[in-house]
Design a protein around this nucleic acid. Sequence first.
DNA 1: GCACTGATGGAGAGCGCTCTCCATGGAACG
DNA 2: CGTTCCATGGAGAGCGCTCTCCATCAGTGC
Lengths: 362, 362
Amino acid sequence: MTDDLRSAGAPTLEDVARAAGVSRATVSRVVNGVRNVDPVIQEAVRRAVSVTGYTPNRAARSLVTRRADAIALVVSGAGVEPGAAEESEDTTESGDGSSFTAQVLADPFFGRVVTGVVNYLRPRGMHPVLMFAESSRSREEVVAYLRQGSADGALVVSTHAEDPLPALIAEAGLAAVLFARPARPVPVSYVDLAHQDGARLAAEHLLGRGCRRTATISGPLDVPAGQARLTGFRDTMARHGHPYIPVVEGQFTQESGEAAMERLLAEHPDLDGVFAANDLMALGACHVLREHGRSVPGDVAVVGFDDSSAALACRPPLTTVRQPVEGMAAEMTRLLLDRLARPDGPVTSVIFEPELVVRGSA
Amino acid sequence: MTDDLRSAGAPTLEDVARAAGVSRATVSRVVNGVRNVDPVIQEAVRRAVSVTGYTPNRAARSLVTRRADAIALVVSGAGVEPGAAEESEDTTESGDGSSFTAQVLADPFFGRVVTGVVNYLRPRGMHPVLMFAESSRSREEVVAYLRQGSADGALVVSTHAEDPLPALIAEAGLAAVLFARPARPVPVSYVDLAHQDGARLAAEHLLGRGCRRTATISGPLDVPAGQARLTGFRDTMARHGHPYIPVVEGQFTQESGEAAMERLLAEHPDLDGVFAANDLMALGACHVLREHGRSVPGDVAVVGFDDSSAALACRPPLTTVRQPVEGMAAEMTRLLLDRLARPDGPVTSVIFEPELVVRGSA
DNA sequence: GCACTGATGGAGAGCGCTCTCCATGGAACG
DNA sequence: CGTTCCATGGAGAGCGCTCTCCATCAGTGC
């Protein structure tokens, strides 16, 4: 009985219309909840939908609405040559940027971004398309992907400040929102953290514990976040009578944190406090400190940044500056959907405040 | 000059055809590289494409080809009620399964899966759509998503063996490939690890080091992987004259590893070797061992499983059983694309062999 | 009682693309 | 030289949906 109402393949609007004894347009109106439809007819249509097992065909809908109802989540590096990924040492993976992918995804930070994005998108029936862009070719692919309407807009998380992708997207007149302010101004909205305030929190905490000989392991200084965290730490320290603070630049990796700590310890064996610009480096620093017979926090207090899973993997657990990554990612997504709803809306930025999480290490 | 060849919106096939002085069909043939087209005309078309800045409209193409050229990467739990996520303690996130999302993404294992999938997909110009399914409602959304043709198939990574999603997908006649064998047989291909062999490797290594009083922290025993790793370890030990091995069940979390280690140590203070069914639990075990004055590997040797980032965050770095997650994920993707190419191909399974990675902890 | 209004359903025109058919023309063959 | 055949380009029919018209009809005011 229901079978002769279906045509060969998946049921279409036409099939439902026939089953309900109305026109295609009316079914469409009911399905999309647009305009007034007589409650009785509405009910009949709904019944027909469930009898036929109808699901709207996305491609057909997209074709006429000119919206994909999908957005891209792009993780973007700054490489220029195809396959010239980041400065990773271990490029044993098989070609074409795979090491970049692996490196980014190994970072729990990225998982938190995805969490925030997904949590905002899910209640709205949308899902992110995951893309990577670390070469100029892959950047063009991202632009093409958006241009051909596969996604309505992009959330761009750059690993490098000099990332050219935001500008490319802006030039092409495509919708996007960035995580973190780009190095050069681009007419695109973004969310960011008040990195300096976070570093200030860390500095004040170390000072409050009585640390008098503190040092810092900074992030890469060509990244705004690395720069800002250093500046914030330095400024606060200076304001409290410590004009000179030993600094070693790290690369946000555990290994670089270890190396930096070795150097700091060699040059300043009497230090009693360390601020690392992220948790991974703080973790490495803790290991090195323990190897050198220093107890944490007894001899040396350590403060990290991010409140990533590394903070809890550390013994003692890290005191750290929490970046509300999930909230930032959700806001980024909100900004993008806003923009899609009102394409000529203003370009804005939303800056989040970090928070000190006190645990065992300081 | 180029402008009057374009119509208002994005350039279409029609525009390119007009610019090249050929028909729509010919442009389509050139763009899709199908059939023979005169080289001269081909060149003219290509020029027209670049002059107009043409990009094929995905929705229109999908509508006729009935392929989305996209696949879904679904992380699936086993919850029954909407929002009834996993047994996570910290459900302070805002409602609707967000804790599930956060929990899954915090696990570096997932990042490795994504890496493998993305690396296989990228050279083929495809990108995964990220979806989560931990409630019955969200499971239906996934099925609907596939049914409406938003994605051609699904890669399903279940966190629970009892996950009903694979069966739902199979019933609906949709294409999918699973990561790990489902608890009940489902006519769907999958990739998996020879978990027992991995546990055997761990057991043999501990025996080889001279450990005589070993214990194990198992994974959750309702998960096939947890079960198989325990069986493999036990069997190997039994075969070498150790018929009884202390076991405490863990939940694959660092915390549960710590608790399990506390219990083992209380009941068997003289143990000299521990096999933890994953690295996170091994990391927790190491912390507890050190707190109880045991050196690793001096007093107690510890072997983990997975070779995740936790293995390197540990001091000493963990000796562990490496699961080739990226390779498995790539193979899973290959199986799915194969199936899409030949929908009536056979249902297969591919089992990967693990490998022992010897580091400092054992 | 009649034009007028507002509410509601149907008809039909595309959206941009692929792909099957058909037309054309030159080469090859008897 | 006529016929067959293959190579190649064009015409056009949809794919399933939305949305703008338009038709219809009940209720309203004068």
